[in-house]
């Protein structure tokens, strides 16, 4: 993921839309690393990890999370935040871990191909 961030930071804008199709990957990876998170924490985590480069339209997390719930990649349960507020916490499932592997290798394949194109140019 570090490679992505550096390449992106080459561009002019200091905040960038994430590349299409990688939102699942980002959420899956974040949950894999950080464990149990609610929506806001996921958004914050993605932003912090990318040194504020990757800007998720925060709301779009929620339809994505719904789709991931349907697919069975994550499960959700209600819990209480530090500030004593009710929040829905998401956890990765076995299927989700498997999916993360698939998404990562897919992403690397595409990025490798793009890198090769750029280098030959």
């Amino acid at each position: 993921m570090a490679a992505l961030i550096r390449q992106k930071s080459d561009s002019d804008s200091d905040r960038n839309e994430i590349p299409p199709g990688t939102l699942y990957l980002l959420i899956l990876k974040t949950l894999a690393v950080r464990g149990r998170l609610h929506g806001y924490e996921i958004a914050e985590s993605i932003q912090n990890c990318s040194d504020d480069v990757l800007q998720v339209e925060e709301g779009s997390l929620y339809p994505a999370l719904q789709r991931m719930l349907i697919k069975g990649w994550v499960t959700a349960e209600w819990g209480v935040t530090v500030g004593n507020r009710r929040a829905r916490y998401y956890t990765l499932t076995r299927d989700g871990e498997k999916q993360l592997g698939i998404e990562v290798s897919q992403f690397e394949r595409v990025m490798g191909a793009i890198s090769r194109v750029i280098q030959t140019a």
Binding site: H38, G39, G59, Y62, I70, G72, T81, R85, R88
Partner: peptide, 27 residues
């Protein structure tokens, strides 16, 4: 599994909406 999750969502549409609202409000 996916289908049964979809069906249970259909059956609990009201709760689903409330929970989504609450989650987004918190955010």
């Amino acid at each position: 599994g996916e289908f049964s999750r979809r069906v249970s969502m259909l059956l609990h549409r009201g709760r689903f909406r409330r929970e989504l609202d609450e989650e987004m409000r918190l955010h």
